[in-house]
Structure formats: structure tokens, C-alpha cells
Design a protein around this nucleic acid. Structure first.
Ligand code: FES
Ligand code: FES
Lengths: 159, 159
DNA sequence: GCATAGAGTACCGCTCAGGTCCTGTTTTCG
DNA sequence: CGAAAACAGGACCTGAGCGGTACTCTATGC
């Protein structure tokens, strides 16, 4: 149903929690603070570390810390680390999704994919921490511009 | 990996193919034109019909036709019909995703969800048919505004 | 009345995400 | 030096849900 995996969700939660500390934090401590199961958190941390989003110190008194400040980490980055790159369909980046023979939409999904990716890249983890302004222009720059009122997609594709 | 289901992909293909006809089209004919398996197409058509996106005529000489012109049908609409409403995590619209106890991100995902939904609503099926402008401002209004260059998400949340 | 084609429903197998566990390695501390 | 702490890196298992299939019923046209 077009949702990202629960692991990606948990990864964002874990990263934000990590951002609240300045010193190294252990996996069990993070699990307790976030309320997530410890093995899952440990697994997530390894993945995030492998992607370069975290730094770690082994051994006793070890733990994890962010490699970048929260504001410099986009949600897309975290999702890509856990779930792999954003691909709305299997036929972006040249793959096949079944309707191979002369499908007229073959490359068109890339546009949609790019839009989604841009949207996710425009939101940082720091944005998740601060309260979203309820009424006023929450999403300002253009992502949120009331597409229901105008003709859908009128201004999207330049054609 | 944050992809929509294959059925949703097929649904868009089928809808676009339907848009190329003015008269009723049968499910087998659509299957042949799109290259998709016939049972799957038939199932899809039933779902799309139930959602009001199609009109049908039963019996001999029956078939399907679009209930609305392609330009008035957003991708989000098709996806919602097949895959259900767009929900990036399970904790939008008040649900739980596991980290229930005092999760600081509880409502923040709604913002992300809204952004994704708006992006998908801004692209119509008609936009999928016409060639995406390669160089020039493909995604004009703001969805594509180079978040890599500026600080990610700097202008997103008004706070 | 028969052929056509959609409407509706029920079912089944396969894939993969989500979760658990184990073992090895590194570092600190007593 | 030994023991404990904590990360590193797998292997493995299970369940839900997607994707696909089949069957029957009903409506329409010739
Ligand atoms: S190849 Fe993916 S939509 Fe046709
Ligand atoms: S409740 Fe979904 S992120 Fe915490």
C-alpha cells in the first residue's frame, strides 16, 4: 500500500534519538529509550553504520554516534540505507516490471520517482524533531501547493 | 523498498491504455495490448470500476471505458484504488507503528505523508502519456528544486 | 436460446520483510 | 592477565501479504 518498511520507520526514530545525545550511546540503551526491541535496533544500527550515517566505537564503553548533524541528514538518506534506493516501480533505472513489450510508460515513471525522491530529500531529520506548524505554510516551498484546487498536475510536466 | 505494488503499476498502464480508446474495450483486448496477463487485468478492472474510475457495460459487446478524462485522474487516485491510501508509515492517521510509548515522531510523519500524497496528486495520467521534457524544467513548480545544493529541508518546515 | 463478457468471490502458493540467534572481535577495567 | 562489555557480521526462521488463478453468476446482444 505504498508504505515504507517498518525498519525504515524505526531507523528514523533511532537516528533522531541518537541526535539527542552528544556522547556514544549503546544499542541496548537506544532500544530502551525508543521502546523498540533490542535485536532490531542492533541490526538497524549496523546497517546505518555500514552506510556511513553513524560512527561507532567497539569494546567496553563503546557505542554509536551520528556521523553528521541531524539537519544534514535527509529522510531519503535514511530510507535508502535501510530499504534501498527509492523506486516507485521496478522499471525505473532501466528495470522491467512485466509490461516490457513496447510499454509507453517505460521511462515516464522516472519522473514520478524523481519527484518522490526530491520530496524525501527535502525533509531532514531535524525537521522531524521540531514541531510541524499546524496551520500556516507547513510545507512552504512548493511541495504543498494545493493540487486539489487546480487541475491535477497542470504545472508539473512542462509540456 | 518503498515501491508501490506491481498491481498499482499495472493499473496505471491499463488506465492509460484505456485512454487511447474512445469506445468500450474488453478485458482480453486490454490484456493483449498491454502485454499483461489477462486474469490480472480483469481483476484490476473490477477494482478500478468499484472505485468509480471506470464505467462498464456487461454482456456481449460489453467492455470498459474511462469515467473521467485522463487529465483529470491523478496517479494518487489510481494508487489509492488499488493499493489503498498512501501511508508512509503505520502511524499516520493515528495508527501505531510499534514505538508507541511517547514517541516524539508520532504526528510528524503526517507531514511527510502529506508531501508524498501531494506529489502524487500533482501528476495526472495524461502527464504520463506525453513525453517528459528532458532538459528544461521538467518538474517545475517546486517539487524539483535541487535540495542537494542547499541545506536539505531548510525551507520545508516553516518553523 | 446461445454466445459473449463483466461481477463477484474464494482460494492458494510464493516471496520477502521482520525478527531471532549465534559466534567472533575489539576495547576497557579490575 | 582475565573477565566483562559492546560492536561486527552473519545465518536462519517465520508469517503476513502480494500476486496470481479458478469458478460461478448475471447481464446483454444477436
Ligand atoms: S515497463 Fe513499467 S510501466 Fe511498463
Ligand atoms: S509511532 Fe510511528 S514513528 Fe513513533
Amino acid at each position: 500500500m505504498f508504505k515504507l518498511s517498518r525498519l525504515a520507520d524505526y531507523a528514523v526514530v533511532t537516528m533522531v534519538e541518537l541526535g539527542r545525545h552528544v556522547e556514544l550511546v549503546t544499542a541496548p540503551a537506544l532500544a530502551q529509550e525508543t521502546g523498540l526491541p533490542e535485536p532490531t535496533v542492533a541490526k538497524l544500527l549496523k546497517v546505518l553504520l555500514a552506510d556511513g550515517l553513524l560512527q561507532s566505537r567497539r569494546g567496553a564503553r563503546g557505542g554509536y554516534e551520528l556521523a553528521l548533524p541531524l539537519k544534514d541528514i535527509s529522510i531519503a538518506r535514511v530510507i535508502a540505507a535501510v530499504d534501498g534506493p527509492v523506486m516507485v516501480t521496478a522499471c525505473v533505472d532501466g528495470g522491467d516490471c512485466g509490461c516490457t513489450s513496447g510499454c509507453s510508460l517505460k521511462g515516464k515513471w522516472d519522473v514520478v520517482n524523481d519527484a518522490i525522491r526530491a520530496t524525501l530529500e527535502a525533509i531532514s531529520l531535524a525537521d522531524m524533531t521540531r514541531g510541524a506548524p499546524d496551520g500556516a505554510g507547513g510545507l512552504s516551498a512548493g511541495v504543498r501547493r494545493g493540487p486539489e484546487s487546480a487541475a491535477p498536475g497542470a504545472a508539473v510536466l512542462g509540456g
